[in-house]
């Protein structure tokens, strides 16, 4: 496999992890526009642990995810007092604050960026992404997914049916941040260099777009969205500088045609029905 192809696959893996970091809170009704901030925390925490404390990369990457999750847990209670667009603004602001802090934190290089000494192979990144997708898929076979949908759909009814709406919201935000933190930590150790500017608005926005494009109704939506966003711009590379314009146009047309995202529940239902029908004709 060429270096170029490996690079694309790693990018796809990293984008997929980030997309699931956005997907989980979104399935509970929270639009997290600050996911890059949580990725930055994971990246810097893990890089510091391998650089300065001599941790093995696997432990450091796990710890990076845990750090992002702990921070999300700490800010979740005050942040979830806001709802809807205001919650999105709060997460957006948090992402900006985190990025600004790392930009000014001299212990991790400040504005000059932070080189990471330990390198991980592409296979590690891909395995981690596979693990994240498997875990989220496993979660989709539990009650938790239905409960998140209930909280998103109607928090008052969810509460009256006995669900702990606040705890579910905190859980969704925290687990999402933990996943994003792992993604950031993997990024740091694959590319061996991080800078605060990378974890900015564009990264958060693109990650949200992966999820919206893929669809929030199916657990595979973020994976498909991340794949399209990673691969299509590469396929359009031949049209040189016009590729971004073409891709932007593609997104607009796509969202107009399928506002619920590419994968919807209706789609998977049609498939199961078709399978059931073909099964009955066979027997």
């Amino acid at each position: 496999m060429s270096g170029y192809q490996t690079g694309i696959i790693v990018l796809l893996a990293l984008n997929t992890i980030a997309a699931y970091g956005v997907y989980l809170p979104m399935s509970a009704g929270q639009l997290n526009l600050g996911i890059a901030g949580f990725m930055a925390i994971g990246a810097y925490a893990a890089a510091y642990l391998t650089n300065a404390c001599g941790w093995p990369p696997s432990a450091a990457i796990g710890a990076g995810g845990a750090t992002a999750a702990i921070l999300a847990f700490a800010v979740a209670m005050p942040m979830l007092r806001t709802q809807g667009i205001y919650l999105s603004l709060a997460t957006f602001a948090l992402g900006q604050v985190i990025s600004a802090i790392f930009l000014n934190l001299d212990i991790v290089g400040g504005a000059a960026g932070y080189p990471v000494a330990t390198h991980i192979e592409a296979s590690v990144v891909v395995s981690a992404a596979t693990l994240v997708v498997s875990l989220v898929w496993l979660m989709s076979t539990t009650r938790l997914t239905v409960y998140f949908a209930a909280v998103k759909n109607d928090p008052l009814v969810a509460d009256l049916l006995g669900l702990n709406v606040k705890a579910l919201g905190v859980a969704a935000l925290t687990v999402g941040a933990g996943i994003a933190g792992v993604g950031g930590a993997l990024y740091a150790h694959y590319f061996n260099y991080i800078e605060a500017q990378y974890f900015g608005v564009m990264l958060s926005t693109y990650t949200v777009l992966y999820v919206l494009l893929g669809g929030t109704q199916s657990v595979w939506g973020p994976l498909v969205g991340a794949a399209i966003f990673t691969l299509v711009p590469e396929a359009l590379r031949s049209s040189s500088q016009w590729r971004y314009a073409i891709f932007a146009l593609f997104i607009i047309v796509f969202m107009a045609l399928r506002p619920q995202g590419l994968l919807t529940r209706g789609l998977s239902r049609q498939r199961t029905q078709a399978r059931a029908q073909s099964g009955s004709t066979n027997s």
Binding site: R143, Y147, A150, A158, L161, G162
Partner: peptide, 16 residues
């Protein structure tokens, strides 16, 4: 919850 199936909606009622 309109987009969930009847069974999935009922699962929430079982929570307590």
């Amino acid at each position: 919850i309109p987009r969930l199936s009847v069974i999935d909606n009922l699962l929430i009622g079982q929570h307590v």
